[in-house]
Simulated scan of single mutants.
Amino acid sequence: MNQYLLSVYEADGSGPSTAAEIEAFMGRVIALEEEMDRAGVFVFGGALHGPDATTVVRGGAGQDLVTTDGPFVEVKEQIGGFYIIEAEDLDAALSWAAKVVQAIGHDIEVRPFRATGRVQADH
């Protein structure tokens, strides 16, 4: 099996705002994650705090490290969350990405992990 990162992109303030919208949204997300579990593709996922909670660390070999508040770049959309899944191939990963888009209403970027030579732990 191959692993894929499904990145959820969202614009600031584009998520559900009322209690009813949040409840409906969470119901769709929970149902999707349960389906991923049953299918054996779910590895890990999470929602991120907003860009205002970002800290950037800059520097390199032999350089002093500098930390600054805020996102690395100014953009209209930020990564709001992600899933790491295992799928047979890109087509299977894209099918899961389509389900994520339907559940959350945000665009998804699908990117395969590159083999690093490290042994991946079973989950």
Rank of each mutant, 00 (worst) to 15 (best):
Q102I: 02
A11N: 11
V75C: 09
E88D: 15
V56A: 13
G81Y: 01
D122Y: 11
P16K: 12
A97S: 15
R118V: 12
P71C: 13
A98W: 08
E109H: 03
G27D: 04
F25V: 11
P16F: 14
A47K: 00
E23W: 02
G105M: 13
G46N: 01
A53Y: 06
F25R: 09
P71S: 04
K99W: 05
D12L: 14
P51E: 15
V43L: 15
V110F: 00
G40Q: 10
L32Y: 00
E33I: 01
I30V: 14
I22E: 07
G40D: 06
Q3W: 09
E33K: 07
S17A: 12
P112I: 03
L94T: 09
V101Q: 15
H49I: 04
G45P: 00
L94A: 07
E21I: 11
E74S: 14
E77N: 14
A20V: 03
A121R: 11
K76L: 11
I85P: 01
R28C: 14
V41T: 11
G62C: 09
T54G: 03
V73T: 12
H123V: 12
G46Y: 08
V73D: 08
L32C: 04
R28G: 04
A19M: 06
L90I: 08
P16W: 12
L65M: 10
M1H: 04
G70Y: 10
E109V: 09
V56M: 12
G117K: 05
R38W: 01
E109G: 06
V8A: 10
V119T: 10
V119R: 15
V101H: 06
K76I: 05
V66N: 01
G60K: 15
F44E: 05
V73M: 07
V75R: 14
Q3M: 15
G117L: 07
T68K: 03
S17N: 02
L90D: 08
L5K: 00
L48G: 00
V43C: 03
D12Q: 11
D89R: 07
E77L: 12
Q3V: 02
A11Y: 14
R38H: 04
G46E: 00
V29E: 05
A39I: 01
A103I: 08
D52R: 10
Y4D: 10
V73K: 03
L48N: 00
A11R: 11
K76Q: 15
D52S: 15
D122M: 12
W96C: 10
E21R: 14
E86G: 09
M1E: 04
L32M: 08
E23C: 10
G46F: 04
R58H: 08
Q78M: 13
E86C: 06
D107W: 13
D64S: 15
P51Y: 03
T68M: 06
D69G: 04
E74H: 12
E86S: 15
A47V: 02
P51W: 03
D12P: 12
E34K: 00
E86H: 02
H123A: 14
A121G: 07
L90T: 06
L65H: 12
D122G: 14
F72A: 14
L6I: 09
D12N: 03
Q78T: 04
V8E: 02
D37Q: 04
I22V: 14
A39H: 10
F72T: 13
E86P: 00
G62M: 05
A87F: 02
A31Y: 05
L6N: 11
S14P: 07
M26A: 10
E109D: 13
G46W: 06
V8R: 08
